[in-house]
Amino acid sequence: MFEQMKGAIFDLDGVLVDTAKYHFLAWRELANQLGFEFTEQDNERLKGVSRMESLRILLEIGGLHLSEHELLQLAAKKNEKYVEYISKLNDSELLPGAKAYLIDLREQGIQVALGSASKNAKFILDQLNIAYLFDVVIDGNQVTKAKPDPEVFLLAGQNLGLEPKDIVVFEDATAGVEAALAAGMRVVGIGQKDVLQRADLVVAGLYELL
């Protein structure tokens, strides 16, 4: 499946770096302030979901109903806490093989893009010292539809100037795998085969592709 690959699009969380733990800590802190528990099991429901949708799920868990204005305030509060955590990030937190694989692709002349729901994606790439390895970065500031909608990948592909059939997506969430397939792209799942059954290939991490 890699023979005709001209472009590669990477999700961020769980593929290149594990920032999910910082999202969890920030959401848990917010839940505690609102007076209820938020567990790691609850957190599974937020994977690959936008910030506002995640907040709605969190409030549903806590049995709270708030106004749109209050929702926006809480989303901003959560993001401040998350940014506080990720401002301490450095390249030691890159997942095994991530940087080496990005470099390997570039040396082969393959174009590289990021396709992430995160609104902090560019900041995180800078913190990890890998921003220079990306030709295109499409994040939550440029898209309105969350995965499994293919918008983020289609936009990344357009910016790379490539056809979907020439692009391989690297994803760790089922919603991301579905989004890549809906975009007409091939997809490598990062994680467990029983979870990412619809991916064309599943590996435990990018280090397996080196």
Rank of each mutant, 00 (worst) to 15 (best):
M1C: 14
E3H: 04
E3C: 04
Q4R: 14
L16P: 01
V17R: 07
F24G: 11
A26W: 11
R28C: 09
N32S: 13
N32P: 00
E40W: 14
Q41H: 02
N43I: 00
E44G: 07
G48H: 04
L58M: 05
L58R: 00
E60Y: 00
G63C: 07
H65N: 14
L66Q: 03
H69L: 09
Q73C: 09
L94M: 08
P96K: 01
A98S: 07
K99P: 06
I103Q: 15
L105T: 06
Q111N: 04
L114E: 03
G115K: 01
A117L: 10
A117C: 05
N120L: 07
N120F: 09
K122H: 12
L125D: 00
D126Y: 02
Q127G: 11
F134M: 12
N141Y: 08
Q142V: 06
V143P: 09
T144H: 07
K147M: 01
K147H: 03
P150V: 07
F153W: 10
L155P: 03
A156W: 05
L160H: 07
P164M: 05
V168I: 14
V168L: 12
F170H: 12
T174I: 04
A175C: 06
A175N: 12
V177F: 11
A179E: 15
A180D: 02
V187N: 00
V195L: 15
L201G: 13
L209D: 08
